[in-house]
Nucleic acid binder design. Structure first.
Lengths: 165, 165
DNA sequence: GGTGAAATCCTCGAGTG
DNA sequence: CACTCGAGGATTTCACC
């Protein structure tokens, strides 16, 4: 096994949707806390019928506000205990699309952020150990025409909204 | 409304769990693709009974491999179109716990990563606009005894495993 | 947005190798 | 110990008000 997962681009700069009301935000908050909440439980908390809540969720999906659901995993428990951010610098001629493509080709890369200014990209990677991290960084350096890297090794992390274990 | 969400610490360096087999990884892969998949659908894909898949998921939760489920949201559509990473530097005397606490106090902070070396922390923030970003950075600077910041403005992002819209 | 009924799904105990 | 089966209850889904 490896780092599984299909691949997709997320577009930025979409226009904000005005027709999102307080109830929609309530639905989103409940689903952020637990993405597998039943419609019936949410309906009870919100004070709406089950069908109404389902329609809200369906609509939020159609609007593209909800892009999907996923499971939260403790990767350390799976043996992927090391997390790092690598800053990448490229020649001024490198198009953003190539930056993303070459980085996404590396299986251990979890996310790619293209940046205004210096560095040109910030890459979130997850690896088994430090030797593995070295290999990944080497692969990133060789992939595109990278002119420089700086890697920030994550010691600990905190995330808003992660459920209490 | 603001950036909703409860708060919790994620511990790192947990020992890897050996008794995770291929079927468990298959379950995790299916749930990463769609966290609301039904047990029946997963059972069919894996070639197991519904009850067996449920017990796998229950066990993965008990082991702490699965820490929860959540919804994926396009925040730009909610009017939170700007994303940035801010590197924070602290005096050598500042304990990690205080770094996390002061950053997490700022509602716009989505995640805090403490770092080995320089900088001392990397903060992921999400804001409505650039003026808002400025305010958040100012608040971060004043919060702890921050000695320096550098903010990386995100132009675009790619995430492994985000579902295709 | 609500209601109700049919289809589907979840849950858990019992039985099997 | 992990799996399958099956029944009862809960949930989802959809047409209609």
């Amino acid at each position: 096994m490896g780092v599984p997962g299909s691949i997709c681009l997320r577009r930025k700069g979409a226009f904000s949707v005005p027709e999102i009301d307080e109830i929609d935000h309530h639905v989103l908050r409940l689903l952020r806390e637990d993405g597998r909440r039943t419609f019936s439980e949410m309906a009870e908390r919100i004070g709406l019928s089950v069908a109404a809540v389902k329609r809200r969720v369906d609509r939020l999906r159609e609007l593209g506000v909800i892009t999907g659901f996923s499971v939260q995993i403790d990767y350390a428990k799976l043996g992927w205990g090391i997390e790092a951010f690598t800053e990448l610098r490229y020649p001024g001629t490198t198009p953003v699309s190539e930056i993303i493509r070459t980085a996404a080709d590396v299986a251990e890369v979890q996310a790619v952020f293209t940046i205004a200014g210096d560095p040109d990209a910030l890459i979130h990677v997850r690896v088994r150990d430090l030797g593995h991290l070295q290999k990944v960084i080497d692969r990133l350096r060789r992939a595109g025409d990278v002119t420089g890297t700086k890697t920030l090794l994550v010691l600990g992390s905190w995330t808003r909204d992660a459920p209490v274990p």
